[in-house]
């Protein structure tokens, strides 16, 4: 039950993009086509889960015992950057097909604040490892959901006649705002 609450809260109620404002850059950047945004969502899910596990273990078994909790930001971002590189190299060797699908998105993920954000939130909320992984995975699913919905809308938007000044970023932001309004309907499902 606890896990169910974490999952629903992370996907719908506190959607990572539309209510927490994490990962806006890829949200606006790669939401032009459904296929690419699905690829991005897959890559992000993979990295978030891995990063959550590694940073959790580091925080609780290295940083805390040594009493250097203030090094959190520096250590986490380095770990995530290294992890992304490693995943990229390993995928290339082990599964060329998956690499073909996710490859171009991986370098972009280092600067996706959702990854670092989830890593820090897991520590802040005092989750245990399993809760952290569930939280990370469902946050990533929420990210993917927002991305794919947005891509679907934007594919239609290309055909619409948008006022000159609103073209590009403004209309995308406005669409996101309306989506966020829709997602506010989920508020109150869990506390």
């Amino acid at each position: 039950m606890e896990y169910l609450i974490i999952i629903i809260a992370a996907i719908f109620v506190n959607n990572v993009v539309l209510s927490q404002f994490l990962g806006i850059c890829p949200f606006l950047g790669v939401s032009n086509k459904i296929s690419t945004s699905a690829g991005m969502a897959g890559a992000v899910t993979f990295v978030i889960v891995l990063a959550t596990i590694v940073t959790f273990l580091l925080q609780h078994y290295v940083l805390n015992p040594l009493g250097v909790g203030f090094m959190q930001t520096i250590v986490f971002i380095l770990v995530i950057a290294a992890l992304v590189q490693m995943v990229e190299i390993m995928l290339k060797k082990l599964s060329p097909a998956l690499y073909q699908a996710l490859g171009i998105f991986l370098p972009l993920i280092t600067t996706n604040c959702a990854v670092l954000g989830v890593a820090i939130l897991v520590i802040k909320k005092n989750y245990n490892l399993l809760e952290g992984v569930v939280f990370g995975a469902s946050t990533a699913i929420g990210f993917g959901l927002a991305l794919v919905i947005m891509a679907g809308i934007r594919e239609q938007l290309d055909l619409a006649n948008v006022p000159k000044g609103m073209k590009g970023v403004p209309i995308a932001l406005l669409t996101a705002g309306i989506l966020a309004l829709a997602f506010m309907g989920f508020a109150g499902i869990v506390k």
Binding site: L18, S19, F21, G165, M166, V169, P170, I171, A172, L173, L174, A176, G177, I178, A180, L181, F183, M184
Partner: peptide, 25 residues
């Protein structure tokens, strides 16, 4: 109230950038 909630952020920024684009031209 919606302007200090999440959707307001997107909507306000969208119009600000649109105004900026217009002024720049």
């Amino acid at each position: 109230l919606v302007f200090i909630l999440a959707p307001g952020a997107f909507i306000a920024l969208a119009y600000l950038i649109a105004i900026f684009n217009r002024l720049k031209k």
